[in-house]
Design a protein around this nucleic acid. Structure first.
Lengths: 374, 374
DNA sequence: ATCGTTTCCGAAACCGGTTTCGGCAAGGGT
DNA sequence: ACCCTTGCCGAAACCGGTTTCGGAAACGAT
């Protein structure tokens, strides 16, 4: 056992034994097996011209020696750096901030499951974002990109399409059915919100939408309008606001609504941050949330559980979103057709304290009975 | 002009002209200049054996042609992938979440300023974090790492030291004066907090510390104790709590303090989240923040400005922290001695509504006079 | 037995750079 | 005039892989 043969599988203990701490490279594996590195490479990459027996033999030795190919070494030939790119645009509004960490967790998990890493960059403006994309594409820092917060006319899409670089959208965009995407059905959520409030007797329902430049805005507005129609409620244009993504913006919008001739008894917000603005506006008006005024948000930010009363909202699973997005992107990078790379998910309604029966309601005042409908 | 000479500098329009859209590689540059690629490489990398005239000539042509070396192509020879690694450990507590985006913005800006990118990964446990480090080191995914939330006995440090990989600490750790680090002087902030409260007449001051496993905890506790001593106040052990990093944990700790024989008139929190917990506890006790009970936080989370009353706190510039950390790390990667790679910064006190004169105070009840001391 | 296929692997080129080595020409000293 | 530096660049090896090409051996069919 000590004086081993001269051509056994132990031969890599000889003079060619890799130094302690040194990376084991492909030639180490091929030397240990008495093969050439080209054979080892093809074996590990499942080339059809390698026999199954040597393939398993190579795989076993590679595992035993702990061989892991250097991704940037293969990248120079294959053109794949095994990395997913994410450009985070700060500043327009903070709404994505609360979810960022869980979103990243999902992305990271999905990426590392396939041996990919996550390369991220930040930018302060749309122009800076596009420039960042250009330089990352030029230097091939990533094999594909995740595009958070899809916009209705998204310049990133044009850029990436022109550069012929794979990408996946977080949020669908009209007229681009051939693009990989993952989306939460926010329209259905808004529809469900109206349904819920209607069942509680509300008839004057306001809607505070998010940023109109984002693709989710028309979708959620549509869901709200369909919900109103399906519930047989008339829509009061004075109770619809746009572009409220911060607390202050939403507060201003709610101030106007609550001072209108026919003030709403409930307000649906396209984003949770806006709902928190409604809280402030209601407090200023002396209205109590949950009794005088019902509020429903969307996103499921942690703060929503700590405000008083706790915010009824639609929770989005951002970790799962990240997980799916990275998976879709990787499959797109590997050449799958975009048609099969489109997924949607549902936001989960969390009924908490901010929704209650409509005040002065002649209809059913006990809304709890309707929970089973949700 | 159309029939150009056959050996002019325009010669790269000939058959060897790079195809439209194709990357310009180093051989394109060398061909255009009539040099070899080795010369071009050395010229661009400031080798001393290249004459100044050809160096500038090469540089000019490289700029003109838009040549950018492929970082993963040079990596295979140089061993540098031009990337900074960040492993974010989720879950222990959410405190880092609110700052994550600005922190990343700083890191990204500092990295890209030197041509580096940011490679990030997430993990769910300490063990997973260490494993992630190991695999990222083994596969050389980054040239160095940023270690957020330094712990008192940090296993990441041992791991990275053993692997001989550059890294920089966010937060100092005792007994490791030879490591690159960036830190905010939280001890000084706590000291200043006591000073401020003392000047407002408070004599019973509680302290709710953060997670004891983090290196900031003893530092801030020390700052608090020194502040108490310097203010001539006695420390009541019953008014000191540890390990409160969430709202609920801090609420529980405050509940105990406020029920103590000698309840505090002010509570200093090592983290803002804890301060929010104190708000809840005070509300439950019927105490009004800012008058019955003063509260000071630390971190400067955005929510602090929106609670009622707005939270007095020490704001930390996380963007600047990220900026400096990436700079320090890059310089460490480039071989600078760790001794010169240590920086500290100061947290800025934001006096808002949660601090007021001590109730029943026989001393100065108008604390505003003391603002100039801060 | 002969010949054409397959099967399977080695040899060598290649990817886009970097680094070592050696040599030519100009410059300097005597 | 000769030799020895020095400055400066080309040639070639190298980094750690991948991919193409070609040929030897095994196989099958006639």
């Amino acid at each position: 056992m000590i004086r081993g043969g001269f051509a056994t599988s132990m031969s890599f203990e000889g003079k060619d034994m890799p130094r302690k701490g040194a990376r084991v490279k492909i030639s180490d594996v091929s030397d240990a097996l008495g093969l050439t590195k080209s054979t080892v490479s093809r074996a590990l990459n499942h080339y059809p011209d390698i026999s199954e027996t040597t393939r398993t033999r190579v795989q076993a030795m590679a595992d035993k020696m702990g061989y892991r190919p250097l991704s940037h070494a293969q990248a120079i030939r294959t053109g794949l750096v095994k990395s997913l790119g994410l450009v985070i645009q700060m500043g327009d509004h903070d709404a994505q901030r609360p979810f960022l960490s869980t979103f990243l967790a999902g992305l990271s998990e999905g990426a590392s499951a396939e041996g990919f890493t996550l390369t991220i960059a930040t930018s302060n403006s749309e122009q800076a974002t596009l420039n960042t994309f250009k330089s990352m594409i030029r230097d091939h820092k990533a094999d594909g990109f995740i595009l958070p917060r899809t916009m209705v006319d998204d310049p990133r899409i044009a850029l990436l399409r022109a550069a012929d670089v794979p990408f996946v959208l977080f949020g669908r965009v009209a007229g681009a059915a051939d693009l990989p995407s993952y989306d939460i059905k926010g329209g259905a959520a808004m529809h469900e919100a109206v349904e819920h409030l209607s069942s509680l007797g509300h008839r004057q329902i306001g809607f505070i939408n998010g940023g109109t430049q984002y693709s989710y805005a028309p979708t959620r507005a549509d869901g709200f309008l369909r919900g109103m129609r399906d519930a047989g409620l008339s829509v009061n244009p004075a109770l619809i606001a746009q572009d409220a993504v911060t607390i202050d913006q939403a507060r201003a919008a709610a101030d106007v609504m609550l001072a209108a001739p026919n003030p709403p008894t409930a307000i649906i917000c396209a984003v949770d941050m806006a709902a928190l603005g409604v809280y402030e506006s209601a407090a200023a008006c002396g209205l109590e949330i949950g009794t005088d005024l019902s509020v429903i948000g969307y996103d499921g930010i942690p703060e929503g559980a700590h405000v008083s009363p706790p915010l009824s909202t639609f929770a989005v699973d951002f970790k799962h979103a990240g997980l799916r997005l990275s998976n879709l992107l990787i499959r797109n990078i590997r050449g799958e057709k975009p048609t099969g790379l489109q997924e949607t998910a549902t936001a989960q309604f969390l009924r908490r304290g901010s929704t209650g029966p409509a005040p002065h309601s002649q209809t059913n005042s006990k809304g709890g009975n309707y929970e089973s409908e949700l």
